[in-house]
Simulated scan of single mutants.
Amino acid sequence: MRSTTVFIARPVFPDIIDRLRPHFDVRTHDGEAPLSQPELIAALQGCAGVFITGSEKIDATLLDACPRLKAVCTMAVGYNNVDVPACTARGVVVTNAPGVLTETTADFGFALMMATARRISESERFLREGKWKHWGVDMFAGGDVHGATLGILGMGRIGQAIAKRGHGGFDMKVAYHNRSHLAPDVEASLGATWMALPDLLRAVDHLVIVTPYTPETHHLIGAGQIELMKPTATLTNIARGGVVDDAALAEALAAGTIAAAGLDVFEGEPTVHPALLALRNAVLTPHIASASVPTRRAMANLAVDNLLAALGAGPDAGRPPTALNPEVLG
């Protein structure tokens, strides 16, 4: 088994990567920046498996250049950077890391929504810049969260966890849009009502976006959709860059079409649209929704579990726990 080589595409907790060493020859990329596509192809020569994050692009070109590759295991839950059909056609198993980051990501999404509604980042900058000279009745007055209408776009695990926080903790009215309706008992437990997207956008005080990024959801929220929202509403995106048209959002924020936005993900990240950087009513964070130490460790451990199993090692040999295309396993 030690003749099998795997590649770790980003620096990861060393003790977790050490779990692979009794079974495989392990190569690592130790730089902070992700590898370019040509660099990744070069690094994967002779490798049977690769551990990736959400930054490395796995497409047909790479797969054809790395014919020994048999397993692509990401520690992220999203996998829009991996061409799963191309992997399936070549017999390459793909795994992701769902479930282990649900609660931590929901915590962050709710926190980002609250920071956006209550103008926390804007008021902190005001204080740090030495501008606080007196108190005023309307100083940084934002919108209430308790009792408001929470809209959730994408009602998977994370969306439901956010709904639970809003309904159970803040007495919010919960509306959602999803490709399919939740079961009636789940809707009832979350106090959630399905709405068509235009109706959802008109109704909500705070919109939180958690939908996966696919060709169908590219720019799902653009200028036309934002115009349907209340001028007092906020928008929070913890899904993926590209679900929201960042340029259109920046224009809407500057014009006061909506009150504020909280963004953890961006089109073309780590590049951020310069207009967003200049806005006082945009709360911006660098894709850290799952960034607690316990959760990031759990994500990495699940990716290692998958890599071991996909290449025939460990207690789940031949049965990766979270395969996206298990049909390739036979």
Rank of each mutant, 00 (worst) to 15 (best):
P11W: 07
W132R: 04
A261H: 04
I41K: 03
H219I: 05
C66K: 00
L44R: 07
G168Y: 03
L308G: 03
P98Y: 09
F13H: 12
A317V: 08
G156R: 04
P286L: 10
L35C: 01
E129H: 11
R10F: 11
L307T: 13
Y213V: 00
H134D: 15
A223Q: 15
F51Y: 15
A42E: 14
L190D: 11
A33F: 05
L62I: 00
R157W: 08
P22N: 10
R296N: 06
L228I: 06
C47N: 00
E227W: 00
G241M: 10
R240S: 11
L249K: 14
M113F: 04
M113K: 09
T217I: 13
L190Y: 12
D83H: 05
A89V: 04
A192E: 14
V244Q: 00
C73D: 01
V84R: 03
L44Q: 02
A60E: 14
H181F: 08
K230I: 13
A175K: 11
D18I: 02
H206Y: 15
P67A: 10
V77G: 00
A252G: 05
A65R: 14
D305H: 01
S55R: 03
A254K: 14
V328C: 04
T193I: 09
A76F: 06
N96D: 02
T211F: 00
T149Q: 06
L40R: 00
A163R: 01
G166E: 02
V244D: 00
I258K: 10
E39G: 13
A111D: 09
A298R: 06
R2D: 02
G168A: 10
G54W: 15
G242L: 14
